[in-house]
């Protein structure tokens, strides 16, 4: 190893180049983006729900980045238009995700706006989809003898309902559902918004 210095310099240069191209330049590009018109900041409850989303690791199975029709039929699946950078203005850290074990959730609030539906689904996904591989989250709920006024009771098919008791959402579940229902970026993206154009093709989307 008699060329430590040139090797070291080369390695650092490669790292610096990658940082410049993949971190600094894109950062400069999106830093000045204002939120997409129509995007609103999260409410207190939604932010708490977002923290639950992050801590439960939903991001490992769900992306939040519908792709353009040139790339995938996400729009036809009802997942919404391709996202643009300014859609994530209030998301820190963003929950883009890399895996789609489950469906994309960027617009789940438009596609599944029902609070009651989400409660059932989070408590036991198999109560709705017998083939679902999503984990159940029973610890976001509590089993009570009787619902108190103001409680959100989870509607369950007999098979999954505890006998003679009711399942009630804990505040964490209610916040999480508030967050999920807020995920609705179906407003139009301005034509000038920064986006992934890497798959655009001439003519109509395939």
């Amino acid at each position: 190893m008699n060329r430590v210095i040139p090797l070291g310099i080369l390695a650092l240069a490669i790292l610096a180049f990658a940082t410049l191209m993949l971190v600094i330049l894109p950062g400069i590009q999106i830093r000045t983006e204002a939120p997409t018109p129509g995007l609103r900041p999260y409410s207190e409850a939604e932010l708490r729900g977002r923290a639950v989303y992050v801590s439960e690791g939903c991001v490992y199975c769900h992306s939040q980045q519908p792709r353009s029709l040139d790339q995938a039929p996400d729009g036809e699946r009802g997942w919404g238009r391709a996202s643009v950078a300014s859609d994530y203005f209030y998301d820190q850290p963003h929950q883009l995700g890399t895996m789609r074990t489950g469906p994309d959730l960027q617009n789940v609030g438009a596609r599944l706006p029902s609070e009651a539906w989400h409660m059932t689904h989070l408590y036991q996904p198999r109560a709705l989809y017998d083939w679902s591989v999503m984990p159940a989250y029973p610890y976001l709920f509590e089993v009570k003898d009787k619902a108190a006024p103001g409680d959100v009771v989870v509607a369950l098919p007999e098979r999954y309902a505890p006998e003679g008791k009711v399942v009630v959402a804990k505040p964490r579940a209610r916040d999480l559902v508030a967050y999920l229902r807020s995920l609705d970026r179906t407003f139009p993206a301005p034509p000038t918004a920064v986006r992934d154009d890497g798959y655009s093709e001439q003519g109509e989307p395939r």
Binding site: G80, A110, S114
Partner: peptide
């Protein structure tokens, strides 16, 4: 309001039955 697992229709199909996305 719905009833049990018959979640309120309006919670998905909208207050005026107008739908949205793939509903």
């Amino acid at each position: 309001q719905g009833r049990g697992e018959a979640w309120a229709c309006s919670s998905c199909h909208g207050a005026a039955g107008q739908g949205g996305a793939n509903i």
